[in-house]
Simulated assay, not measured.
Amino acid sequence: AWNFDGAGVHWLPHIWGTEGVAYRTDKWLPAGDAPSYGDVWSEENAGKTMGRAHSMMLGAGLYMEASGAMEPGSVWAAYGDEDTMRDVWGKITDWCMARKDRIKLIWNDADTQKNGLLNEGVVVGQTWDGPPLALKAAGEPVHYQAPVEGAMAWVDGMSMPVGAKNEEQVYAFIDYAFGKEAAGKAIDSHGYNSPVLGADTFSGDVYKKNFAEAYPGDSLANLNPWPAEAPWYAEVRTEFVNKFKSA
Rank of each mutant, 00 (worst) to 15 (best):
K114I: 01
A164W: 13
N210V: 06
S219K: 01
Q126V: 00
E213L: 09
P30L: 03
W11L: 14
G20L: 07
V196P: 04
L117A: 00
A164I: 10
Q145W: 02
A146K: 07
N166L: 13
E239M: 12
G198C: 06
T84G: 12
D87Q: 13
W226P: 02
A151V: 02
G38K: 04
F240L: 13
P132N: 02
I103Y: 02
N45Y: 04
V123Y: 09
W232N: 13
N193M: 14
K180M: 08
W2D: 15
H190E: 11
L105K: 08
E149D: 08
G80W: 07
A53N: 06
G125E: 03
D87T: 15
S189Q: 15
D200F: 00
R99V: 10
G121F: 12
E120F: 03
V170P: 03
G217D: 14
N3S: 15
K104H: 09
L62W: 14
G73L: 07
L220P: 05
H54P: 11
D111Q: 14
W28S: 06
I92Q: 05
G116E: 05
K136V: 02
P131F: 04
D109P: 03
M158Y: 12
N210L: 14
S55T: 14
E168P: 02
A212G: 11
G51Q: 03
W95I: 05
Y37A: 08
E140F: 04
F211Y: 14
R237T: 11
H54L: 11
D94N: 10
G204A: 12
R102H: 15
D81P: 03
A110T: 08
H143I: 06
I15M: 12
L12R: 04
D83V: 15
W107N: 01
P227I: 07
L223V: 15
P225T: 10
C96K: 04
R24N: 07
V122Y: 00
N210F: 00
A137P: 08
I103F: 00
W232K: 07
A46Q: 02
V206C: 06
A221C: 09
Q169D: 12
A186V: 07
G204Q: 12
D33I: 10
P216E: 01
P227D: 05
D205G: 05
A138V: 05
G184F: 08
N3I: 15
Q126W: 00
Y63S: 07
V9Q: 12
V206M: 09
S246T: 15
M97A: 09
R237G: 09
A1H: 14
A78C: 03
E168D: 15
W28V: 00
S189Y: 13
A146V: 04
G139P: 04
L29R: 11
L197R: 13
Y23F: 08
V206T: 15
G61H: 09
M158R: 06
V196L: 03
G17A: 02
T112M: 13
A77W: 05
L105F: 03
K165M: 07
D129R: 01
G38M: 07
F202D: 06
V88D: 00
D81L: 01
L29H: 10
K245S: 15
S42D: 03
G179E: 04
F173N: 12
E140T: 09
